[in-house]
Amino acid sequence: MRSLHERLHHEARAYAGDDDRPLAAYTGLMALYATTVLGTAAAARAFRRELPDPTPWDIALNALATHQLSRLIAKDPVTSPLRAPFTRFEGTSGPAELKEDVRGTGARKAIGELVTCPFCTGLWVATASTAGSVFAPRATRLATTTLAALAGADFLQFARAAAQHAADETP
């Protein structure tokens, strides 16, 4: 009879085929996330922190802030030193955004996929914002307001660039 480790390894190979899919590392990242969430919830309970009652405004503010911080972490040139151990620079993918390929295997590859994907990073950012709203609501609101303002400014930059481009194309 095969051991549990052998069976799990067989299932991972069957799932991945010829691709490098670091399922064990993904499982580790999921466990880290779950442990962080459970630890945060336990701390909130131990310190008798009240849970916030978010308004639609709070949700919109957090959505914009999460979008902005996720893109800053995953794509911004200034944060590339954070991604460098897990990625390889390939060029630019848009205004003020880098294109990077994930490198390595196992945990290195899984972390690389996490830190280069704004959708993946967004879950961690949104969770941190939620924890912040429990433990430091005023500071978190200030940070999310700042990030939301930056997101709005970025969208306005794109709109202005598109308008300028359209004006330049008009005969």
Rank of each mutant, 00 (worst) to 15 (best):
S70A: 15
R71E: 15
L72Y: 09
L72A: 09
L72C: 00
L72R: 12
L72W: 15
I73D: 01
I73N: 01
I73K: 00
K75N: 07
K75V: 00
D76K: 09
D76R: 08
D76T: 08
D76G: 02
D76S: 14
V78D: 11
V78F: 15
V78L: 15
T79F: 15
T79D: 07
S80I: 00
P81E: 05
P81I: 05
L82F: 15
L82E: 07
L82D: 01
R83H: 05
R83I: 01
A84M: 12
A84R: 15
P85G: 11
F86V: 08
F86D: 06
F86I: 02
T87A: 05
T87V: 15
T87E: 07
R88Q: 11
R88V: 14
F89N: 03
F89L: 14
E90Y: 03
G91A: 03
T92H: 09
T92E: 15
G94R: 07
G94M: 09
A96G: 08
A96C: 11
A96L: 14
E97P: 00
E97F: 04
K99E: 10
E100R: 04
E100M: 12
E100Q: 11
D101K: 09
D101H: 10
D101T: 13
D101F: 04
V102Q: 06
R103A: 06
R103H: 09
T105I: 10
T105P: 05
G106N: 05
G106H: 14
G106R: 07
G106Y: 13
G106W: 12
R108M: 10
R108H: 11
I111M: 06
I111F: 13
G112T: 06
E113N: 11
E113A: 03
E113W: 02
E113C: 01
L114N: 00
L114P: 00
V115C: 02
T116H: 00
C117Q: 14
C117P: 02
C117A: 12
P118R: 01
P118E: 07
F119Y: 13
T121P: 00
G122F: 02
G122S: 08
G122Q: 12
L123W: 12
L123D: 02
W124G: 00
A126K: 03
T127W: 11
A128P: 00
S129H: 11
S129I: 15
T130S: 10
T130V: 04
T130Y: 14
A131M: 04
A131E: 10
A131H: 08
A131D: 03
A131G: 11
G132E: 11
G132I: 08
S133P: 01
S133I: 01
V134F: 02
V134H: 02
V134N: 06
F135H: 06
A136W: 14
A136D: 05
A136N: 03
P137K: 07
P137G: 03
R138H: 04
R138F: 06
A139Y: 00
L142F: 09
L142T: 07
L142E: 08
L142K: 04
A143Q: 05
A143S: 10
A143C: 10
T144P: 01
T145I: 08
T145N: 06
T145G: 06
T145K: 02
A148C: 07
A148I: 05
A148T: 04
A149H: 03
A151D: 13
A151Y: 12
A151W: 13
A151P: 00
A151E: 11
G152V: 08
A153K: 10
A153H: 13
A153C: 07
F155H: 12
F155E: 08
